[in-house]
């Protein structure tokens, strides 16, 4: 049976390499998508969103992907994230603190605030918390 070989890379280093995956679920700028083995060659722009990689026997690896590009060819999937994290490495307290900070910044109505950056930080923190929540349930 064919399977996917997946590499998840961020600018500083490769964060994961999963061989023999049966499905990848991610979110591109066009919306959620999933890739199964023997998918046609595909490339897309990724959004800040969770990513799931399913391996046989129902095991799921989860990641946080903050923007980037995905390329798939001949069952080799390269995810080149602008930044990313492995689900089980997420520091929940830090993510909660980051979310609170971003919310406060957005609510402050400060003129000098970089709105898109604050929104991006909020989104990132929310995705991190969402991915982290799977660990406990």
């Amino acid at each position: 049976m064919t399977s996917l070989n997946i590499r998840i890379i961020k600018p500083e280093r490769e964060i994961a390499r999963i061989d023999g995956a049966s499905m990848l679920v991610g979110e591109s700028v066009g919306g959620q998508f999933s890739i199964l083995p023997d998918h046609t060659a595909y490339t897309t722009i990724l959004r800040t969103a969770p990513m799931e990689v399913r391996v046989d026997k129902g095991r799921i690896h989860r990641f946080v992907i903050c923007g980037g590009i995905l390329r798939m060819n001949k069952n080799q999937v390269d995810v080149c994230a602008a930044s990313g994290e492995i689900g089980r490495d997420i520091d929940v307290e830090r993510a909660e603190a980051a979310m609170k900070r971003a919310r406060e910044r957005l609510d402050s109505g400060d003129e000098r605030m970089d709105r898109s950056r604050a929104e991006h930080a909020l989104k990132r923190a929310m995705v991190r918390l969402k991915v982290a929540s799977f660990r406990h349930g």
Binding site: V29, F33, A41, Y42, T43, T44, R71, K74
Partner: peptide, 8 residues
């Protein structure tokens, strides 16, 4: 190169 299906 391979014929990529490209999104968007």
């Amino acid at each position: 190169p391979p014929m990529y299906l490209i999104e968007p």
